[in-house]
Design a protein around this nucleic acid. Structure first.
Lengths: 194, 194
DNA sequence: CGCGACGTTGATTTGCCTCAACGATTGTGG
DNA sequence: CCACAATCGTTGAGGCAAATCAACGTCGCG
């Protein structure tokens, strides 16, 4: 069942006893979303931290002009939430929406706080997850400042080949910080080159 | 002495017993750097996580054209390191350099790993620190995509008024992802407006 | 079939960069 | 105490990457 994928993930980072694994699973729940559904909306408090079993989500900011700016994509084995809203239990700055039919394991804020007490090793798990997320996010800032749009796109394909093939181009453009028109021009230019 | 500032910081996030505080302090060391000195250089393995007591550091990436791109500034009560290099104990992508004479408390990689075992509560402290860092870094990406250079500068001044007054403009320009010339033009434009 | 979602292409505009020259300030050694 | 270099900031001319706007193409689906 779906929770097995979560256990596999956890076991790659920390060692839990069988009892601890049972406690962990007793405090999470699984949920399915349809393509297009939101798991968080700007202004709401983000109640869950989601571990993605299958499918794909985007976390995005909607600016004053109605433009979407994608903070991150999440696919299998990734975490998805408005983390600021979740940890502060404050209104969300971002929207999180399913790009495909999506299955997740949910940690509610209260249950996760309980779990940290029941299984202190989980602090370590999430510390490591956050380290990775921070490193990746810093690298993305550097890429956005030191590379041209074309090179950012090529790097994106290199880093996330599976995502590139699954989602519409206009979302990739948003993630890269460019318009869909310009990404289209970049792609035709790349095709001409080879 | 300097280590008091670290204790104050720790106490704001977790509760340690007196014994634990003593253990913690026994595993860290304080160090002073002069303006211009590096705490990490690109290619070296980052051996320490630094908690800033006084002074200011910049973490930056030097690209193929020799241009600096600033990942973050760190002042009093902030953490400074190439976190990717530190957690993987792998060659650093970034340089960390002191912009002022700087005093830090250092956690060596080995001592921090020991400390996580001796005082598991520290996992929680660093989890929270990383949450904050990730949230701030995500917000910076959104700002860099949704705001003009001028608005990013105004936001920077709003978020980090003390940093703005302490460091040369060309570093702020680098942090904002623009050239020093263009920041100069932005500033003169702002002055004209009021 | 026809509509909506997504992608393409071209003309024009613009935000920001590059390059170059020129201050202003500080520090340093003769 | 002054020359001078180094460091940092300013200003202007010209150029380019990417945005905007608009029109059109394509495909899947109710």
């Amino acid at each position: 069942m779906e929770k097995q994928a979560l256990l596999d993930y956890v076991r790659r980072h920390i060692d839990l006893t069988t009892e601890e694994e049972i406690v962990l699973l007793s405090k999470v729940s699984s949920r399915n979303y349809l393509k297009g559904q939101y798991t968080v909306q700007q202004g709401d408090v983000c109640k869950n931290l989601n571990f993605v079993i299958s499918g794909c989500l985007k976390t995005f900011y909607m600016d004053a002009e109605g433009q979407e700016h994608i903070v991150l994509f999440a696919i299998e084995d990734w975490w998805s939430s408005d983390i600021g809203s979740f940890v502060e239990q404050a209104p969300a700055d971002y929207n999180v929406q399913c790009i495909e039919n999506t299955s997740v394991i949910q940690f509610s804020y209260e249950n996760l706080e309980e779990l940290y007490v029941l299984i202190p090793k989980l602090e370590r798990l999430f510390r490591k997850m956050l380290e990775k997320a921070l490193i990746a996010t810093q690298q993305r800032i550097i890429r956005s400042f030191s590379l041209t749009a074309k090179d950012r796109y090529l790097k994106f394909k290199e880093l996330y080949p599976t995502i590139d093939q699954r989602i519409p181009q206009y979302m990739i453009a948003s993630y890269l910080g460019i318009t869909k028109e310009f990404l289209s021009k970049i792609k035709s230019q790349i095709i001409l080159e080879q």
